[in-house]
Design a protein around this nucleic acid. Structure first.
Length: 106
DNA sequence: ATAATGACGTCGG
DNA sequence: TCCGACGCCATTA
């Protein structure tokens, strides 16, 4: 059912990666948003999945509640935001969630 | 079974 | 705005 994502992963992990794969370019979701959308686990569990299997998806589109990119990946994430035209805040270090936040598939 | 860990979130100073 | 303390919860040790 999923497209292109690696298999042999726990169900909860594939569920998370599946949602992340649906986030449109230029838009983002917070760890908490993903957890809430799935209706299971919490932000830390989503982070755990991203840390281990995030490389297979657009990991930079999942970030913290304050709009800052995943710890340790700020540089690469910012590069992607410029490339996708993701709206940033005036400081240029965080995404403007007011504009870029994606509520998830209807 | 108990304790530590972590790509989090919220709140108070 | 920045930082630390706490709460949260599946996974690991």
């Amino acid at each position: 059912m999923s497209g292109g994502l690696p298999d042999h992963l726990p169900d909860h992990a594939s569920a998370v990666l599946d949602v992340v794969d649906l986030i449109p370019p230029g838009r983002v979701m917070t760890y908490g948003d993903v957890a809430e959308y799935l209706g299971q686990g919490g932000p830390r569990q989503v982070g755990q999945v991203m840390a281990r299997w995030g490389a297979a998806v657009a990991w930079w589109r999942v970030l913290k509640a304050d709009g800052s990119p995943p710890p340790g990946h700020e540089e690469r994430a910012l590069r992607q935001y410029r490339r996708e035209g993701t709206p940033l805040r005036s400081d240029g270090r965080r995404v403007d969630l007011r504009l870029a936040r994606w509520e998830g598939p209807a």
